[in-house]
Design a protein around this nucleic acid. Structure first.
Length: 872
RNA sequence: GCCCCAGUGGCGAAAUGGUAGACGCGGCAGACUCAAAAUCUGUUGCCUGCGAGGGCGUGCUGGUUCGAGUCCGGCCUGGGGCACCA
């Protein structure tokens, strides 16, 4: 058998079958070893897995298999985030039913994942589009409704007036519907929301305790929740508004700059703005224009700042007789604060841009340190930092914080129109979670609207509310709404004819509790089984894309709290450890007709040193676009099945682990896959050749060569262990390359091994450790090697190698020696040498003497075990 | 526009404030071979020098420090998120 190449095509399916037949990765809920829950973000069943999945699931699998080897009861499940827009698009474009399309995709992708050799417990698989899953979600919706955590309110949507449908933000391109090309309008609908803001303070405070989350994610969430302390200020209108309004309330975090106020601005949706619009055709036209921008904040805030002067004026709270104009402006959001602001152009960039455009006054009131009040001016850059207040009468000389206090106190005690003019307020940027979607392929919201009884939950014994199979997708609008019979039901309270809610839930709801469902997916009576879910949760290591840093993770944190409030779990935080992998990015390509085309459809050539692309089918030139995250919509994806078919899963796994640091983006390129495969073959060869040399092995006083190899083994195990614990897979891979090189040097001298029984023993130990260490990364190869070494059982069940601490430290170490911060020499000295000895040895070095050139060193800095720096 | 992150050889990258470039890919040279593939060995940041060596170098710029890729300020470029893509 010796000398044969390792053949993944036959070996990988063999071990996958062995694992499955022996249910090696089936996790028992009554396993009483310490638990470890590893979870990767489950995929949307788009049709095929992509390299991002390969990267994500390989990382999770390394952790899962490593923790198994460390003796934990590991839970490592997989499922499908199966509701969503693409299925409905497929229904419209390809005339396939969303369910058929989705389940077909799931079957195909399950096969792809199985070919990767992941240590997943497939017995726990769930699909969120299956009634066995969503019935429990409906139950929880009802529980949330009854707990006051779900409610209806009016919100705006992107409305396509031609397709008569609500558009997602990504379906609005340059203000037009992606299919119809019609100008998108804002439309107000009464929709369901989850009261995430009930937990604003707690979601913020608890971030401090998530110490195994990346700082950047916690910071992003902190900013998203956006707690700010400010003041609501009621400005008096100089003359009453159309409905007798006497004041306008603004929220500000900078009351200290009130003397710099040069205008007030209302959101186009502000009640006063709406009232004014009814009497002023020009204002109404302006508001209409704002409504055509769609609902996306990114679009609103990047749009040219525009405003409309209502002609009304408001009184300055402190300056007797001074009034400022009241504008309506397109960049004021109705959802934040009170939907109205006062503009202080000198100290806010947006206000400044607006003021410059419309020629409004710019009065600086905060003076930068060291600036001269007589000459300080604000040009095109607002001054937003701390300073001392000036131009502000009773506030002059105060710093920003003190002025905030002084203004607040004064306005709190000033009575305007029967109420205090100022009110301190803690404001959150976080808004309630709008979950209503006017779509078919989602979890039906289990509510019934009755003319007499109002909005009534579907009784629990009537759940699930199933989606009708016979929906039609060729008509505009929501298929559930225009289905001939589905929505007509009897009111559960009074029995009279009533209507089902036809909205379905945001798919983020589906993914906000799947981690809990995995703990006992067999429970048909309830979403969770408390004893089980409370044992497994929180997820010890959650791994997924950074693109989910805010929404998915924040929604899941909310949902867990809401589940706790309704008795479904016993904890607040679902994910104790979080790792956000970088994305797999790829060039994008646009075909001759301007359409996105996939890398598989094109050929890239180098002509005169320039990369040029064209369509494979000869239909024309292809424009090479920017490198972007792989996405279905941009078609810049690569099919991993091809890689696996050619090189094997272990090669693909090894490649995605070794290529880049896991939290950084990786640009997919096929270069390097061959290198990974060479290492697969190299490991096999080392084991294959090495095992022939182990016959005479015996332990005892190690020869020098044996000691060198043994030290390499134990140092490598210690380092790889440390790297995997920190998810530094690329470093672990580098260590294993070095280790393989060390083993290779020994295997290359078979006569020396045969003549040295302790070296043979060290070689045996090294090969054993190598196989155990590659087990989590290249599990099929590891099993084959394990078997070739004559070991019984599976390496998947074997323990992680133990480290002998005595073999990890060396007796001597080599310190770099710097003179004035520049490296001039090296000093090799006993590990336990004290500082005086190191200093003496350093100053005796020839290179140091030469560099000092007779001068006496000012000081010698000795950092134990690290460096010596001689300062001359 | 706002929030967050990243930038190091030809390429992917490594480096608790302590020898910048470990490890891999690619390249070059050599060994083995009739030859090729595979494999193995050596070499490979830039400039300079016959050489020992010396100088420069982590996007740009300024600072803190005995010492900065790492910390701080200001920029540039690229990426992620912005609430209906998932």
């Amino acid at each position: 058998m010796a000398g044969e190449r390792y053949n993944p095509r036959t070996t990988e399916p063999k071990w996958q079958t062995t694992w499955a037949e022996n249910r090696v990765f089936s996790t028992r809920n009554d396993d009483d070893r310490p638990k470890y829950y590893v979870l990767e973000m489950f995929p949307y069943p788009s049709g095929r897995i992509h390299m991002g999945h390969v990267r994500n699931y390989t990382m999770g699998d390394v952790v899962a298999r490593y923790k198994r080897a460390k003796g934990f009861a590991v839970l490592h499940p997989m499922g499908w985030d199966a509701f969503g827009l693409p299925a409905e698009n497929a229904a419209i474009e390809k005339k396939v039913h969303p369910a058929a399309w989705t389940y077909e995709n799931i079957d195909y992708m399950r096969g792809q994942l199985k070919a990767m050799g992941l240590s997943l417990d497939w017995e726990r698989e769930v699909a969120t589009c299956h009634p066995d899953y969503y019935r429990h979600q409906q139950k929880m919706f009802v529980d949330f409704f009854e707990a006051g955590l779900a409610y209806r309110r009016t919100s705006k949507v992107n409305w396509d007036p031609v397709d008569m449908t609500v558009l997602a933000n990504e379906q609005v391109i340059d203000g037009r519907g992606w299919r119809s090309g019609a100008l998108v309008e804002q439309k107000e609908l009464v929709q369901w929301n989850f009261r995430i803001t009930a937990f604003s303070e707690d979601l913020l405070a608890a971030l401090d305790r998530l110490d195994r989350w990346p700082d950047k994610v916690r910071l992003m969430q902190r900013n998203w929740i956006g707690k700010s302390q400010g003041l609501e200020v009621r400005f008096e209108l100089a003359a009453p508004g159309p409905n007798g309004e006497k004041t306008v309330t603004v929220f500000t975090t900078r009351p200290d700059t009130l003397y710099g106020a040069s205008f007030l601005a209302l959101s186009p949706d502000h009640p006063l703005a709406k009232a004014l619009g009814e009497e002023d055709a020009a204002l109404a036209a302006f508001q209409e224009k704002c409504r055509r921008m769609g609902t996306s904040v990114a679009v609103l805030e990047t749009a040219e700042k525009e405003g409309y002067d209502t002609g009304l004026r408001v009184k300055h709270p402190f300056v007797e007789g001074k009034t400022v104009p009241l504008w309506v402006a397109n960049f004021i959001l109705m959802d934040y604060g009170t939907g109205a602001i006062f503009g202080c152009p000198a100290h806010d960039q947006r206000d400044l841009d607006f003021a410059r455009k419309y020629g409004l006054e710019v009065t600086p009131v905060v003076l930068p340190k060291d600036a001269d009040p007589a000459t300080f001016e604000v040009g095109d850059v607002a001054f937003v930092d701390d300073g001392s207040i000036f131009n502000s009468e009773f506030l002059d000389g105060l710093d920003v914080d003190a002025a905030f206090e002084t203004v607040s106190k004064r306005l709190e005690t000033t009575i305007v129109d029967g109420a205090p003019q100022g009110l301190r307020k803690i404001n959150f940027r976080l808004r309630d979670w709008l979950i209503s979607r006017q779509r078919y392929w989602g979890c039906p919201i289990p509510m019934i609207h009755c003319d007499d009884c109002g909005t009534v939950p579907v009784p629990v014994d009537q759940l699930p509310v199933l989606l009708p199979d016979d929906a039609s997708f060729d008509k505009p609008g929501n298929p559930l709404d225009h289905h001939p019979t589905w929505k007509h039901v009897a009111c559960p309270k009074c029995g009279k004819p009533a209507r089902r809610e036809t909205d379905t839930m945001d798919t983020f709801v589906d993914s906000s509790w799947y981690f809990a469902r995995f703990t006992d997916p067999w429970n048909t009576a309830a979403p969770t089984t408390r004893a089980v879910v409370d044992r497994w949760l929180p997820v010890d290591q959650y791994i997924g894309g950074i693109e989910h840093a805010i929404l998915h993770l924040l929604y899941s944190r909310f949902f867990t709290r809401a589940m706790k409030a309704t008795g479904h779990v016993g904890l607040d935080e679902p994910f104790a450890g979080l790792f956000t992998q970088g994305m797999v990015v790829h060039e994008t390509y646009k075909g001759p007709a301007g359409q996105w085309v996939s890398p598989a459809e094109i050929v890239v050539e180098e002509i005169d040193g320039k990369r040029v692309a064209r369509m494979k089918d000869g239909s024309g030139a292809v424009e090479i676009g920017s490198i972007e995250k792989m996405s279905k919509s941009k078609k810049n994806t690569v099919d991993p099945s091809e890689i696996i078919a050619t090189w094997g899963a272990d090669t693909a796994r090894w490649f995605v682990l070794s290529d880049s640091p896991p939290d950084r983006d990786v640009i997919w390129t096929e270069a390097g896959v061959e290198g990974a495969h060479r290492f697969v073959q190299r490991v096999w060869r080392l084991v294959d050749e090495g095992r022939e040399l182990l016959a005479g092995a015996s332990r005892g006083e190690r020869s020098a060569a044996a000691l060198t190899l043994a030290k390499a083994t134990h140092k490598t195990v210690a380092a790889v262990e440390d790297d995997i614990e920190k998810l530094g897979f690329n470093r672990a891979v580098a260590r294993l390359y070095e280790f393989a090189n060390a083993i290779g040097r020994v295997v290359a001298t078979p006569d020396a091994v045969k003549a040295d029984a302790t070296l043979a023993a060290a070689l045996g130990e090294a090969l054993d450790a190598l196989v155990r260490m590659i087990g989590p990364m290249m599990p099929h190869l590891a099993e084959e090697c394990w078997s070739a070494l004559g070991r019984s059982g599976l390496v998947a069940d074997a323990a992680w190698p133990t480290v002998d601490p005595a073999l990890v430290v060396d007796d001597t170490l080599t310190l770099p020696v710097q003179v004035n911060g520049k490296k001039r020499a090296e000093l090799t000295i006993a590990r336990d040498a004290d500082e005086a000895a190191v200093r003496a040895a350093t100053l005796a070095l020839e290179a140091v003497v030469a560099a000092l050139d007779g001068k006496t060193p000012k000081k010698v800095i000795v950092v134990p075990g690290r460096i010596v720096n001689v300062v001359a």
